[in-house]
Nucleic acid binder design. Structure first.
Length: 527
RNA sequence: GUCCCCAUCGUCUAGAGGCCUAGGACACCAGCCUUUCACGUUGGCAGCACGGGUUCGAAUCCCGUUGGGGACGCCA
């Protein structure tokens, strides 16, 4: 019952490297290590509650897959595709499979595979079973190609790459579409030139049309004259992408193929393979691509696009899930959508048909929201690596505690974990604190004099709490006929080295009496 | 070049012929709050690409134009 899968990639483990700040601290979604659970487990799925318009889907168990090629890193578009597949599977109580499309041996690297798994794990998109290596299934692909050969749907082609290149050039020069001309379609292999290894090509229909009923794009039709006889098996016996995808999707029982728009035109050719094999094709849903902020195609030039780059920029995985979900998918006016809610709501109908652009400002705004919602201890765990990197040393226990107590003050003030780390640095810096320009300007002679007096009052304070400190400062300001800010700002400058920080009385409490007085002492004689 | 897809505020989107004087969110601007900065809150700016149809009525349906994007490999 189990499809013949070859070597499998294991889900990213917690040991997968100590990469970027925060790397080791993140929890990992791990795929269940079970073996082949597909056939049996699928049949035992409890009936899922579905809304009326899901009848067709509920009739079968949903199986989706994410099939990246390990030639680069998991970028944000791939992340969204994975998310959609994952959500759709979860929504219908189905399976979300992962297949690594590594048939191009020259370009596939283990590092890229690791990065892919790591990226998915960070996004907490856990896949069912183990990741399948497409390359390991090459024998099965070849078997299917031979089957098509046998049933007359494919043929050997002895044209060399050079010959085909020349053909393309010629067609291009004449302004014709570049297509294989079928020169070996009806020739007998006995005419084959000696020493040339043939490829196997699909004998595609030359008349009529091929139609895709896409769940996102609608019905799309193409004339078969537009499609040429694609290569199924290369001369070295390895499968091409088009063959491999179809065979794997079929064997893995994939019911819904949700993927990038760039595959829409491939779908026609894939459909021809399904037809040649007499297989029932899955449902297709082609999601429009994501563009960079300038509307152009997403590329490295647009800055950090690999998923782990967003982690390094201090984004939370739940932020990415929410943001990516809303990028190209909508549910009325809802903006803040938890993952649990997304699983309940996600559908193919809600996917938009037009490409969308990345908007970092919105992503940051969402991140700020999720930071405010996050547990303090979790934020400390996630942000400590950033802090330690900036500090150039590890935090000691007491400092981590100090950090933890400061989190509530930072929550409404930061948009990313990096901002949190930057903002919190003053808590750990060795005295005397470096002062930024504005802070230094606050500490003029007059302010220093006031601070000295204030320090004396602080010294007499036994109950060192934010409220007590505040009372002292307020009384002091009132007595001197000063506005509170007139005193609070210099105090902030002395305690934080900056003019921007969480409420300064809270800061004083967190710093403690001794540290507070010491920092005030430090600026006594001027910045 | 050939084929395919797309088109609502700057951005993400709601919109299934009358509920649209086009709604929400982010960003931006202003007010309030305030020990700083934020958060919060109130208000504001801002859009149906263009041209033809169809219809009593079109952001919504049809055609064209323009503008974007994608695919045309022994890559995936």
């Amino acid at each position: 019952m189990c499809p013949p899968v070859g070597r499998r990639y294991h889900a990213a483990g917690t040991e997968s490297g100590p990469p970027s700040p925060g790397g080791g601290a993140y929890g990992r979604a791990s795929a269940s290590p079970g073996s082949c659970t597909r056939a049996s487990a699928v049949l035992n799925q409890p009936p899922h509650t579905l809304s009326p318009n899901d009848k067709i889907v509920s009739a079968m168990t949903v199986v989706t897959r994410f099939a990246p090629s390990p030639t680069g890193y998991l970028h944000i578009g791939g992340g969204r595709t994975a998310l959609f597949n994952w959500l759709f599977a979860k929504r219908h109580g189905g399976k979300f499979l992962l297949r690594i499309e590594d048939t191009d041996r020259a370009r596939s690297t283990q590092a890229a595979v690791d990065a892919l798994l790591d990226g998915l794990s960070w996004l907490e998109l856990n896949w069912d079973g183990e990741a399948v290596s497409q390359f390991e299934r090459k024998d099965r692909h070849a078997e299917v190609a031979r089957e098509m050969l046998a049933n007359g749907h494919a043929y050997y082609c002895y044209a060399t790459p050079e010959e085909l290149e020349a053909l393309r050039e010629e067609q291009k020069a004449k302004g014709l579409p570049t297509r294989y001309d079928g020169r070996w379609r009806d020739r007998h292999p006995s005419e084959a030139p000696a020493g040339t290894k043939p490829v196997i090509r699909l004998k595609a229909p030359q008349a009529g049309e091929t139609v895709v009923h896409d769940k996102v794009q609608g019905t799309v039709t193409v004339q078969n004259t537009q499609l040429d006889d694609m290569i199924l098996l290369r001369s070295d016996g390895t499968p091409t992408y088009l063959l491999a995808v179809v065979v794997d999707d079929h064997d893995m029982g994939v019911t819904h193929v949700i993927r990038g728009d760039d595959h829409l035109t491939n779908t026609f050719r894939q459909l021809q393979i399904y037809h040649a094999m007499g297989w029932t094709p899955p449902e297709f849903a082609h999601v429009p691509l994501i563009h960079g902020p300038d509307g152009a195609k997403l590329s490295k030039r647009h800055g950090a696009l690999a998923i782990d780059a967003y982690r390094d920029m201090g984004f939370l995985p739940e932020t990415m899930r929410n943001y990516l979900l809303r990028l190209g998918w909508g549910h009325g006016d809802d903006e803040i959508i938890s993952t649990a809610q997304a699983i309940e709501w996600f559908n193919l109908e809600g996917i938009g048909r037009s490409p969308s652009r990345l908007d970092f400002a919105k992503m940051e705004n969402l991140n700020a929201h999720y930071i405010r919602e996050a547990e303090d201890t979790r934020l400390v765990a996630l942000t400590t690596p950033f802090v330690e990197q900036k500090l150039g040393r590890a935090l000691i226990e007491a400092e981590r505690d100090r950090f933890l107590r400061s989190i509530p003050g930072f929550k409404p003030r930061v948009k990313t974990l990096v901002e949190l780390a930057d903002g919190a640095l003053f808590l750990f810096r060795a005295r005397p604190l470096p002062l930024d320009e504005k802070a230094a300007a606050q500490l003029n002679a007059e302010a220093r004099g006031q601070l000295a007096t204030l320090a004396e009052k602080f010294a007499g304070l036994n109950d060192w709490t934010a409220a007590a400190v505040e009372q002292v400062v307020r009384d002091f300001a009132e007595a001197g006929g000063l506005k509170l800010g007139k005193v609070a700002q210099p105090l902030r400058a002395a305690l934080t080295g900056s003019t921007v920080s969480p409420p300064i009385f809270e800061v004083a409490e967190i710093l403690g009496k001794d540290e507070t007085l010491s920092r005030m002492e430090d600026v006594k004689n001027g910045p």
